[in-house]
Design a protein around this nucleic acid. Structure first.
Length: 713
DNA sequence: ACGCCGACTTGTAGAGAAGAAG
DNA sequence: CTTCTTCTCTACAAGTCGGCGT
């Protein structure tokens, strides 16, 4: 499946055969080794309000949830008791965000004044009445949609550069259910003795108890982080007693939650229906908003519930407690002149702002990593659709100048300037292998890399590998700690350069020590407007899809085989982008089942063949017998249908086998220009629902409308 | 130049719904 | 109808990248 071969000629050498087929990739199951962080957290607990609270991450670790629900601001975080300056040399993260009010509001550059022009255009008032809670059964009154359906956004007037909307109203975010205490008979025991827990500790423990069957709870780092945080959030009395996680007996709690889960699963039809109605009522209020006069779906309108942080791979912060987010932490973004969504009784929003340079409706800062979380629109919205379209247009644009860029970097392989050489080689990888850019990462994140952050230890150079020359072996953990393993025959000059880059370096040293993503992107920007590293991924993915479809589609194929062709093209892209999934747990069994089904069907076919032949024979000798004729025809059709079914099974089997560890969804959703797919389905009259499910059709409605059968990328 | 921050896209897992098999 | 499988959808973590302040 040399998807990209033949396109990117490498004049200088034989590196065209990317041994895609030979890739062996597996998810690295990270072994959670100790990673002991020292005793900082202990200090945190003890120094709770003392002057020695100068521990790492002190800000992050301050138990926000100490705040009373009614508290009206963040101010009560004992600022005074915390040092924010002294000794901060070793404290990198800490300053990231501070707890004082102003500082916690994302400082938007120029949000202060909105251009006058908008005010004029502010469409009439909200249709989504702000509500404290969903009123089941009563939907917000619907207004009729404006003349131009929203998904034909390309027919609408463009907004001025940088402006994202003219008017915006919504109902704010929905909050998760409050914690429900365990029934009295569920006891928690510590060191064999029943112990009465405070509500907060019980809630925090419940997060752990619910996960007891999960692998996470066996990991040392996870357990330590959890228990450290748990202790910080305990009452004084609890802290004095509950000192070791190992002595905590969660079995009663765990059992209880298992039963609850079972109950949930065994809900009756009526209960399910009731629940559905209730959810719908919530979605009708919080799931919709109005942008520039159009009703649009909101994406993630629910505030994330509290729980334990599930960092992927070997994340140093896995297991830390993600606190419940109170309204006091949430910033609302709405149109000027709109009434802010109603805040839950007795609370108030952290702030209400009117910034039309951003697309989010609400945001808050999450306590574990200190990142912002946003409530944003659904992918079906104009705002997202337009952006998506623009992304693909940029990638298409790259198509026109990619050859020049390639020539460019090839000649840079010989530059006297080391940075330029490194940049050229890195770009070669980004282009040829669709690697991610690879920003630097902090020590308190999982150790993963991309192109620019590759280290010496991640590649091996082979003068000869199997039948190829100048092979680079890649083996590293990429995004989400997914392993990337590949053997690539490269341009000879690239190989020589790599030899130089590696020379006199330790395994842990940066391969491209003069390079980083900003330099790369800055450079790319000079080559083409809007060009950045990730555009290459989009470009190569979409280009490969089109190429594969063009090459592989046999217009005489029947429908199942056409679909198979599409899936194969899709798969070639997924392989290129290294989109992996864990092999389904029951994969082998499933394959076996399919095999059995196929055998059975084969038998049926054989049997039917006999019946058919007999009928045929009989008919041949009784030409004028209507019954014989009818029987012959019936048996014939039966046979055909069976053969068809067998074929389908066969196709299914191949498709499944090839798909074992490959995830198609990501590329379909994020990398493949939907217009290519749409054009293809139109050209070969494949029903669109064979390749896009409902959500996908909604997301790509713009492309379904836009692309004709002759669309060419 | 560089590090931090904010906003936005990309990515996998897992829950829940729907469908097929027994 | 129940049970097991498969598909769909949501949740939320983890990237990318531009801009700002120093």
């Amino acid at each position: 499946m040399g998807a990209k071969n033949g396109v990117k000629e490498e004049p200088t050498s034989s590196d065209d055969e990317v041994p895609l087929a030979s890739r062996k990739r597996k998810k690295l199951v990270p072994k959670g080794e100790p990673q002991s962080e020292g005793s900082e957290s202990e200090a945190a607990v003890n120094g709770n309000s003392g002057e020695d609270s100068d521990y790492k991450n002190s800000d992050d670790d301050v138990p926000l949830s100490k705040r009373k629900a009614e508290s009206d601001s963040d101010d009560e975080i004992p600022l005074a008791s915390r040092k924010r300056k002294g000794g901060s040399q070793k404290i990198k993260k800490q300053t990231k965000y501070d707890s004082s009010d102003e500082e916690n509001v994302p400082k938007k550059k120029k949000i202060k004044k909105e251009p006058e022009t908008n005010n004029k255009k502010v469409v009439k008032r909200t249709i989504v009445p702000p509500k404290g809670e969903a009123k089941p059964g009563k939907k917000p009154k619907k207004e009729k949609e404006p003349d131009i359906p929203i998904w034909k956004w390309w027919l609408e007037d463009k907004l001025p550069e940088g402006q994202k909307w003219r008017s915006l109203s919504h109902s704010g975010p929905a909050f998760p259910e409050p914690y429900e205490r365990l029934p009295g008979h569920i006891k928690f025991k510590y060191d064999g003795k029943v112990f009465q827990l405070s509500e907060r500790t019980e809630e925090n423990m419940s997060f752990f108890a619910k996960m007891l069957d999960h692998d996470y709870t066996t990991k040392v780092v996870f357990r330590k982080n959890f228990f450290d945080d748990l202790r910080k959030l305990m009452t004084q009395e609890e802290r004095e007693v509950l000192k070791k996680l190992e002595l905590c007996d969660f079995s009663a709690m765990h059992q209880y939650y298992l039963e609850e889960a079972a109950k949930r699963k065994n809900r009756t039809k009526e209960e399910k229906e009731e629940l559905k109605v209730k959810n719908k009522a919530i979605a009708d209020v919080y799931g919709l908003c109005k942008v520039d006069g159009h009703i649009q779906k909101v994406g993630n309108f629910r505030i994330e519930p509290p729980g334990l942080f599930r960092g992927r791979g070997d994340h140093p912060k896995q297991g830390k407690i993600k606190l419940r987010t109170p309204p006091e932490s949430i910033i609302i973004n709405i149109g000027k002149g709109e009434t802010a969504p109603k805040c839950p009784e007795g609370h108030k929003w952290k702030a209400v702002q009117h910034d039309n340079k951003v697309t989010w409706l609400a945001c808050w800062k999450e306590n574990v990593l200190g990142n912002f979380k946003y409530v944003m629109l659904n992918p079906t919205s104009k705002l997202k659709g337009e952006k998506d379209h623009a992304k693909y247009e940029t990638a298409r644009n790259l198509k026109n100048c990619v050859e020049k860029i390639r020539e460019n970097y090839r000649s840079d392989f010989q530059s006297k300037e080391m940075m330029v050489r490194q940049r050229a080689v890195a770009l070669y990888f980004i282009d040829k292998l669709a690697l991610r850019a690879g920003n630097e990462k902090d020590d308190d994140e999982a150790d993963t890399v991309g192109c620019c952050s590759l280290r010496v230890e991640h590649i091996k150079l082979h003068e000869k590998w199997e039948d190829k020359e100048f092979v680079v072996e890649f083996d590293f953990l990429g995004k989400d700690s997914i392993r990337y393993q590949n053997w690539v025959a490269v341009n000879k000059r690239v190989y020589k350069n790599l030899k130089i880059f590696v020379k006199d370096k330790e395994p842990g040293d940066d391969l491209f020590d003069r390079l980083n993503t900003s330099k790369m992107n800055e450079y790319l920007g000079t080559l083409m407007d809007g060009l950045t590293a990730k555009v290459f991924r989009t470009y190569n993915a979409s280009w490969t899809l089109q190429q594969q479809l063009q090459e592989q589609t046999d217009s005489k194929s029947d429908l199942p085989n056409l679909v198979l062709t599409y899936n194969r093209a899709n798969r070639a892209v997924a392989v290129l982008c290294n989109h992996q999934r864990a092999a389904p747990k029951t994969f082998d069994k499933q394959m076996e089942n399919l095999g059995n089904q196929k055998d059975a069907k084969k038998e049926d076919v054989a049997k039917q063949k006999g019946v058919y032949k007999e009928a045929k024979n009989y008919y041949r000798h009784h030409r004028n017998n209507d019954k014989a004729k009818k029987r012959y025809e019936i048996e014939k059709r039966k046979l055909e249908r069976l053969q068809e079914a067998l074929l389908k099974l066969q196709v299914k089997e191949t498709d499944k086998a090839e798909n074992k560890t490959i995830a198609l969804g990501t590329s379909k959703l994020n990398y493949l220009d939907p217009r290519i797919t749409v054009a293809w389905t139109k050209r070969f009259t494949v029903p669109i629902e064979k390749v896009y499910n409902k959500t996908q059709r909604e997301k790509f409605l713009w492309a379904i409308e836009m692309a004709t059968a002759d669309f060419e990328w």
